[in-house]
């Protein structure tokens, strides 16, 4: 609604009504009017603001486009979380998280640099860092720094707020009042978190292997020899990605803030490892390693890659433990997401 005639009338009325002469009271308002708006005859030409009305016309515009099917909606959720890491307008990740991810990415592909140096200066220098059973295992499951500073911390930072913030902000209503099923919601968030971990852990493993092949000029015989080890390390890496993501999302789903899930995940991974280690050291009992996500993964990983095992418990038990952890986490996650409300949280 525009109110132009009313405003014009207000201007005219002001011109007629407001006059300045010797008797005019010298107030702040009249001084301002006299200074800026009075003409030679002392008449003010001050427009009064319109008493009512809006400065735009409110018109409902229809939209005749077509809505895409389920895959597009799911991709939107995935895209929202992934693109938010690199550009604005999507899920706003804190700058510190982004910086940390960059540092971890550099750190996780860090083992290509000794390989490159080795290719320049001869085998002697890079021997320790070149692709072998132990180095492939270490790339995925090495405790320090990767499973202390990299992967659990990244998982905590990425996954910690993923579901809890929807509870906190009520944004779950934004998803569930639309044709997004709870399975799609969880699956896409899971996939987004797992993708980040996958890039840091498994993709960097392939980068490392490829750089070795190219830089050292490895032939088919070498590739045939080492490729099964690479596949074993990949499987171990995938198991790590899945398990950490499941544990992290389960933690996130039981909270309304990002702190508890993050600390909880770190306590679970690193705390259980420390307790199991101390119990094994003092009481010579290895059974607690079964309940430590890292140790269970490491035991299975050592079997998959074929390195010498550090554990006395069979790797199949550890595998069962890893499967159990995932099942429990996903059960908790499904239950908690099922309880998320649209009308009230």
């Amino acid at each position: 609604m525009t109110e132009e005639p009313a405003e014009e009338a207000a201007v005219e009325q002001t011109n007629e009504d407001v006059r300045f002469d010797e008797a005019s009271p010298v107030t702040g308002a009249s001084r301002i009017e006299a200074a800026y708006s009075a003409d030679d005859t002392g008449q003010a030409s001050v427009a009064k603001p319109g008493a009512s009305g809006q400065v735009f016309t409110q018109t409902y515009l229809p939209w005749t486009g077509t809505l895409n099917p389920r895959w597009a909606r799911n991709y939107a959720v995935y895209r929202h979380h992934m693109l938010g890491l690199v550009k604005s307008g999507h899920r706003p990740w804190p700058i510190l998280v982004r910086v940390y991810l960059v540092l971890v990415l550099i750190g996780s592909i860090g083992d290509i640099f000794p390989v490159l140096l080795g290719s320049l200066f001869g085998d002697g220098l890079g021997q320790v860092f070149m692709v072998s059973r132990d180095s492939l295992y270490a790339h995925v499951l090495g405790f320090f720094p990767r499973n202390v500073l990299y992967y659990p911390v990244v998982t905590a930072l990425i996954v910690g707020t993923m579901i809890s913030e929807d509870r906190l902000n009520g944004t779950s209503a934004l998803y569930f009042s639309r044709p997004i099923t709870r399975f799609d919601y969880v699956a896409m968030k899971y996939l987004a978190a797992a993708t980040v971990l996958f890039i840091l852990c498994v993709f960097s493993l392939f980068v490392y292997y490829t750089v070795e092949v190219l830089a050292m000029g490895r032939g088919w015989a070498w590739i045939v020899d080492t490729f099964p080890i690479l596949l074993g390390a990949t499987a171990a890496g995938m198991l790590l990605v899945v398990t950490y993501t499941s544990l992290g999302l389960a933690m996130s789903s039981v909270s309304t803030n990002g702190f508890f899930p993050a600390i909880g995940l770190l306590a679970l991974v690193l705390g259980s490892k420390s307790v199991a280690f101390l119990v094994a050291l003092i009481f010579e009992q290895d059974v607690l390693y079964l309940f430590s996500p890292y140790d269970a993964l490491a035991n299975v990983g050592q079997a998959l890659v074929g390195t010498e095992s550090n554990y006395e418990i069979p790797w199949t038990w550890s595998l069962a433990s890893v499967v159990g952890m995932n099942v429990l986490s996903l059960y908790l996650l499904a239950n908690r997401v099922a309880s998320m409300e649209v009308t009230r949280e």
Binding site: G89, R91, P92, E165, G170, T171, A173, S177, R344, E345
Partner: peptide, 13 residues
């Protein structure tokens, strides 16, 4: 659907 309670991400524009 316009929910009664908060349903917006406060950090987004």
């Amino acid at each position: 659907y316009m929910p009664e309670y908060e349903a917006l991400d406060p950090r987004m524009d």
